[in-house]
Design a protein around this nucleic acid. Structure first.
Lengths: 323, 323
DNA sequence: TGAGAAAATGTACGCGTGTACATAGTGTGA
DNA sequence: TCACACTATGTACACGCGTACATTTTCTCA
C-alpha cells in the first residue's frame, strides 16, 4: 500500500495520507518484515565475555556510532548481538532466525574456528562485513585500516628522533591487525639495518588490556638498559605500561619514549600525553554498514568490497625524551 | 507448534524434533513475532548528536553491557535506537512501528519536552525504564544511583581532610542527577556551616565534556586563591579541569585537591590518579532490562519499579595535597 | 464394561502487509 | 470514432507461525 511501487494520482495520494492520519494509522514494521521477508535490521556482532565488560570501549563505541549513522540513513535498524567466545553456536545461528538481513562483525579472530565459520556464512550467502580485520586469501567484505602503515609511521618517527632500541609490545596474535602492526614495525626496523634476531629480543606480547601492559613493564624492566623506546599496539597497553614503568621509577617521555595506537580519548589525558596512531574507527563503521546495506538493499557491489583506510600518527609528548 | 503449550507425548516430541533436525528446520523469528504480536526486541534509546560521538563512552558502554546480559538471558534481542536531540518525533515514534516491546531510555533530560513525551508514553501503555535519571513526581520505571549520597560522601571526605573552600563543577542542569549531586554537595557544605551565598561563589557549570572542564579552569583561575579543592560532577570534566589547571601552573593533588565522579577507566590513568565516586552502571543496566522484561513478558511488577543503587567513594591521589 | 471427564492431538483461521495479476481508465494517432 | 498501448486502480492470495477450538484418545470410577 505504501510501498511506492507504481505511480499514483496525486489527489488519491493525498486523500489516503489524510485518512491514514485521521485514523492514526501506522504501518506495522513486523508485518512489513514478514510480508517482504526482510527484517530491516542490521546485526552488529560484538565479542562478549561474561562479567568482563567490553575490552576496548573506545574502539567499539566509535565503530558503533559510525554504523548507527549509516543505518539510520538507510532506514534500517540496528540489532546488537553479543557473541560469547565459548559459544558452540556459530555465526550461522545469527542468521537462522532471520532477524537480521546482514551483519557487521567486530572482533573476529583469524583462527581456524572463526575462519571456518565465516566461510560457512559466505557459502550460505549471508551478507556480512568484517571491520578492522583482514582475512588473507579470502574475499570477505571488509573495512580495515592500514595498520602496517600506521605502525611503520610510528616506528619511523621514533627512529627519526634517534631511538634505535625500540621494543614492540604487541597484542593478541589471533587478530590480523596484530600481525599487520608487527609487519610495519619489522619493516621500519629492518630498513635501518636492525637484524631479525635482535627484533625477537625486543618483542613483547600482551592482550590489548591495560593490565597486560602493566605486566609487560616488569618483563621489560629486566632489560631496560637495552631499550630506549617502546611501540605498543594500542593505547590501553601503552598506558598500562607507562604506569607499570612509573612504579619501577621510569617515566615515559623522560627515561624512555612510548608510542601507543588508536588515539583513544585516554591518550590525551595521560601524563605525558601519548604519541599514538589515529584510526578512523567511526568512518570504518560507517563505511562497513553503508556498503553492506547497499549490497543487501540494492543488490549493489556484486564483487563485494574490501576497503582500507589510512591511519595517521599523532605526535604528543610521550616520545620526547633526551633522545 | 513449538510453543510448549499443552503437554505432549514424549515419543511424539522426540520424533518431531528429529524431523526438524533432519529437515534443517529453524523457526522464523519474524513470523513468530508477527503471529504472537510481539517483537521480542528490547529497545535501548541513546542520545545522538550527529558528528559528535557519544559524550560519555564509559557510562553508555557499561550500561549497554548490563542490558545486553539481561536481555540475552531472557531470550530477547537488543535494538539500538539513536535519538537525535532536535528530533521533532517523540518517544512514541519508537513504539509506533512496534519493532520493540519496551525501551530502556538513556540520557533523558528533565525538561518539559522530555517530561511531556514520557508521560505520553506512559499513557499509551508503552513499557519503558529510565536509567540514571529520576523524575520527581512521576511514577516512571527507573533505575537510578544515589548521586546525592555519592556527592555527599565525596565532599565530606574533602572536608574531613581539612579542605573547606571546595568549589563544585556541576554538569548540565537538565539532567536530574546534576541536581542530585548539587544537593549532596550543598548538604555536606551546609553541615559544616558554610553559608549559601558562599556556595554560590563556589559554583561552576560545565556540560560533562572534557573541554568544558578545561574551560572551567580559566574561570576558576581567577579566584583560585579562594579555592583549595574542587568536586567535579564527572571524571571527564575533572580530567579536563586538571589539564586546564596544569596549563596554568596548578597541579591537582599538589596545589589543590580534585575529586571526580563515575570511576571511569580514565580515572585510573590520570596523573595523579583521580579520587572519584564509583557508580554501578553495569548493574543498573542489568536491573533495568531485567525488571522491564519481567513486566513485559510475565506481566509482573504491577506497580512498576523504582530502584536506587548505592555509590561508593574511591580514594586515589588527586585529593592528597598538603591539606 | 460403559459413561463421563480429562488429556492428547488435529485443524483451520487469523495476524497485516507486499505483490502479482486482473481490471478499469486514459491518451494517442489514424 | 475506434483500436491499441500504456497507465492507474482494485483484488486476492501468500507469507509462517500461534492459538482457539473441534476431535479423538486415554483414563477413572462406578
Amino acid at each position: 500500500m505504501f510501498n511506492g511501487i507504481g505511480p499514483m494520482k496525486e489527489d488519491t495520494r493525498q486523500r489516503v495520507l489524510a485518512a491514514a492520519n485521521a485514523l492514526n494509522y501506522h504501518p506495522n514494521a513486523i508485518a512489513q518484515s514478514f510480508a517482504r521477508r526482510r527484517s530491516g535490521n542490521l546485526g552488529v556482532v560484538l565479542p562478549y565475555v561474561p562479567k568482563v565488560h567490553l575490552f576496548s570501549t573506545y574502539y567499539f563505541s566509535e565503530v558503533l556510532s559510525g554504523i548507527g549513522s549509516a543505518v539510520r540513513e538507510k532506514g534500517y535498524d540496528l540489532l546488537l548481538i553479543f557473541r560469547e567466545q565459548n559459544d558452540s553456536g556459530d555465526y550461522n545461528d545469527i542468521f537462522r532466525s532471520q532477524k537480521v538481513d546482514g551483519c557487521v562483525i567486530l572482533g573476529a579472530t583469524d583462527t581456524p574456528r572463526d575462519r571456518r565459520q565465516l566461510k560457512q556464512l559466505e557459502e550460505a550467502g549471508h551478507p556480512f562485513c568484517l571491520v578492522n580485520q583482514h582475512f588473507a586469501g579470502e574475499r570477505f567484505n571488509e573495512v580495515d585500516a592500514d595498520h602496517a602503515g600506521g605502525s611503520y609511521q610510528a616506528v619511523k618517527h621514533l627512529l627519526k628522533k634517534g631511538y634505535t632500541r625500540i621494543a614492540f609490545l604487541n597484542g593478541s596474535p589471533e587478530f590480523s591487525n596484530s600481525a599487520d602492526r608487527k609487519r610495519g614495525y619489522t619493516q621500519a626496523m629492518s630498513e635501518v639495518g636492525i637484524d631479525p634476531q635482535r627484533l625477537q629480543q625486543l618483542y613483547y606480547e600482551g592482550n590489548y588490556s591495560r593490565t597486560s601492559g602493566q605486566r609487560a613493564a616488569a618483563a621489560m624492566h629486566r632489560q631496560l638498559s637495552e631499550i630506549d623506546a617502546v611501540f605498543a599496539a594500542n593505547d590501553r597497553m601503552a598506558i598500562g605500561l607507562m604506569q607499570g614503568l612509573r612504579e619501577l621509577g621510569f617515566i615515559a617521555g623522560r627515561d624512555l619514549a612510548i608510542v601507543g595506537y588508536d588515539d583513544s580519548d585516554a591518550a590525551r589525558v595521560t601524563d605525558p600525553p601519548l604519541t599514538t596512531v589515529a584510526v578512523p574507527f567511526y568512518e570504518m563503521g560507517r563505511l562497513a554498514a553503508e556498503h553492506l546495506l547497499n549490497q543487501i538493499i540494492d543488490d549493489a557491489e556484486p564483487g563485494g568490497f574490501r576497503i582500507k583506510l589510512d591511519t595517521q600518527l599523532v605526535i604528543r609528548d610521550s616520545c620526547r625524551t633526551a633522545g
